[in-house]
Structures are given as C-alpha cells and as structure tokens.
C-alpha cells in the first residue's frame, strides 16, 4: 500500500522503534477469557476456527428450522431476503445473482458470518458444531459438496469456492485515474445535448408521505389491512400503560418479521393487530403454515394464556409452525408484549 507514503512510514517507524514511549497508562490488560469471548473472527486460512464438525444432514435440519423462513428451503429466498444459493454463471450478465456459491471467494466468510450474525433475529446463538453443519448445508445447496459431506476444522481447507479467483485489488489509480485527470473542456464541448433517459419513465420514487408509487415493482404482499379501531376509547380495563411501553421495547425482537399499527403489512410473519382474542391464523392474505392453519381449525384462539405459551416456545405449542423464533424466556417479557399487542386494537 503506497497511498500514504510519508506520513505512514514515519508513524510506523515511531510505533515500532519506541513501542513504550507514547504510553499514557490508560486502560487495562484484557483477560484471556475476554479476548476469547469477543475474538470470534475466522480468516481465509482457517485461523480462528474452533474444534468441531457438522454434516450436511444435520445442517439441513438446522437450516429448515432456523433459516428457511427468510432464505427459503433451497436458499432461493422468500420475498426480498437475501438469496443464498444458485446464480452460477450470472456474474457477467445484467443483474448478477451473487450468492455463497456464485460469488463468495472464501468459505471462512460463510462460517464467520453465519456464526456472528445469523439467524437474523438471534445472532451469536449458534454453537460451533451447528455452524459447521449449516455451512456444510449451504455448500450442499450450492452443489459444492455431496450429501454425505462433513465440514470440520480439518476438511475446511479442502473446499474450493468457485469464485475464489474472481477478485482483484482496487486498480482505479492505475486504470482510471489518469483518464479522469485530464483538464476538462469548458466551452463548445459538444455540438448538442439530447435527453436519452428519464427517471419518471421508471418512477420508483417514494411519495412525500413515504408511500410507494412504483409501477414496476409489485408491492410486497400488501394485505387487507384491518381498519384501525375507531378511536379506541381509553377502556377502563385496558392494559397497564407501563406494561405496554415495556412491551413495545420487547417488540424489537419481533419487528424483523411482524408489523403492527396503521398501515401494517404482512411480512415474513402476519400483521399482529388485533391478535389478542382473535382465532389463530385470522389475517387474510397471509400464507400460514399447514400446522398453524390446522391449529386454527382445531379451535386455537389467541388468549393471554395461549399466547403466553406460544411465545415462550413457539415450537412446543405448534411443532411445525414456520415462525422461526426461539421464544421469550422471561415471563415478564411475555406479559409485556401481550399487553402491547392488546393495546393495538385491530
């Protein structure tokens, strides 16, 4: 790197020559446990990988349970969530499909990212072995390994990523900058100017109220939004406002998938207006899982009790629900969120 020649040579020299000179005596030494807790990054050469392993079959189960709701059963993605598989041979076409298989140069990046940031609503919840298994499954979805493959720290470096050689280091300075540094023309630069493209032709600009005026993009699953309760009067038996406020905070855990309030739309999960007291699966236009529809046909109604149980451990109440959410362990969180949902009316 020769971008900061003088300054950095000096700074580097100072730093290396007199390591102790500039110390201020601030801060303290980190303990090995602290470093281990935070330093979870993995490099292309495998540095940082823990002991462990996981195979494709195990990964499939985990993926279906924890990832498919957003990324699709085959990595094809639901709605606009990221696509994780496919796209080979598209990089030089219009709108390339960049996936783990078609684009990512290093396997370490998959392991590291899934381990640190996924599933989206619960980062850092996967164990090392789970991450090995899910990573193996992502490779399988991209036809990069066989179905009996097991990924481990040992087999890690054997995997070849198809686009490993697809990247080159920024060469703008060498390739473009000279061309873009010629003295610019000031007058009689061209004979005439004609407009060749208009933005309004493909107008996708949000209106002032933030609503979408797209003519090219279909709106994302706009559901029949239940009309807001006519000026919901301050019902004397309404939920405790403090609890409601606490519940609104807890709702941060649900927001990735659910919308509430006026103008709410079905997203990964259904609108949650008017849930409390309503039968399960009552939102029109949302594609519930078979399991949820069957539970509704069986008479499941969202009372405070059933919601409490469902939110504590969704899969314990409806084993094959497609809500991939581990649950709210704390009873007070569940109480708060139920109060919040109650406060929304329908």
């Amino acid at each position: 790197m020769s971008r900061f020649p003088e300054l950095t040579a000096l700074a580097l020299a100072a730093l290396i020559a007199t390591p102790a000179a500039a110390q201020m005596g601030l801060g303290r030494e980190a303990t090995p446990e602290e470093v281990a807790a935070w330093d979870i990054d993995v490099r292309p050469d495998g540095l940082g990988l823990p002991e462990g392993s996981g195979d494709v079959a195990t990964g499939e189960g985990l993926y279906v349970e924890k990832c498919a709701v957003c990324h699709g059963d085959f990595g094809e993605a639901v709605g606009r969530w990221p696509v994780l598989a496919g796209g080979e041979g598209t990089l030089d076409r219009k709108d390339p499909v960049k996936t783990v298989g078609s684009y990512w140069p290093y396997l370490s990046t998959v392991w590291d990212y899934v381990h640190r940031a996924m599933p989206f609503t619960e980062g850092r919840s996967l164990t090392g072995d789970e991450t090995y298994a899910i990573t193996a499954y992502l490779l399988y979805l991209n036809d990069l390994v066989d179905e009996d493959f097991e990924l481990s720290r040992e087999t890690f470096l054997e995997v070849e990523m198809p686009n490993a050689d697809g990247f080159f280091v920024d060469d703008r300075d060498a390739v473009e900058v000279a061309e873009f540094s010629k003295p610019p023309c000031m007058s009689a630069c061209k004979a005439e100017t004609t407009v060749t493209r208009h933005a309004t032709v493909i107008d996708v600009t949000p209106d002032d109220d933030g609503a979408e005026t797209s003519e090219t993009e279909a709106p994302v699953e706009t559901a029949a939004v239940p009309a807001p309760a006519a000026a919901a009067p301050e019902a004397p038996a309404g939920p405790d406002p403090e609890l409601v406020a606490a519940g609104e905070k807890v709702f941060a855990k649900c927001k990735a998938c659910h919308q509430v309030g006026e103008g709410a739309q079905n997203r990964t999960g259904p609108i949650l207006n008017g849930t409390v007291g309503a039968p399960a699966a009552h939102i029109d236009g949302f594609k519930y899982s078979r399991a949820m529809t069957e539970a509704a046909e069986g008479g499941l109604v969202w009372t405070e009790e059933t919601l409490d149980a469902f939110l504590e451990k969704p899969k314990a109440v409806i084993p094959r629900t497609k809500m991939s959410f581990a649950g709210l362990r704390k009873a007070e969180d569940r109480e708060a969120i139920i109060a919040y949902l109650q406060s929304l009316g329908d």
Binding site: R43, P44, V100, Y103, Y106, T109, Y113, A117
Partner: peptide, 10 residues
C-alpha cells in the same frame, strides 16, 4: 492478513 469478512467480499 486481512480477514475477508462478509462486508468486504459478498
């Protein structure tokens, strides 16, 4: 060496 994280590859 660089870490080649998701935000510098994907």
């Amino acid at each position: 060496e660089p870490w080649e994280q998701r935000e510098e590859t994907s």
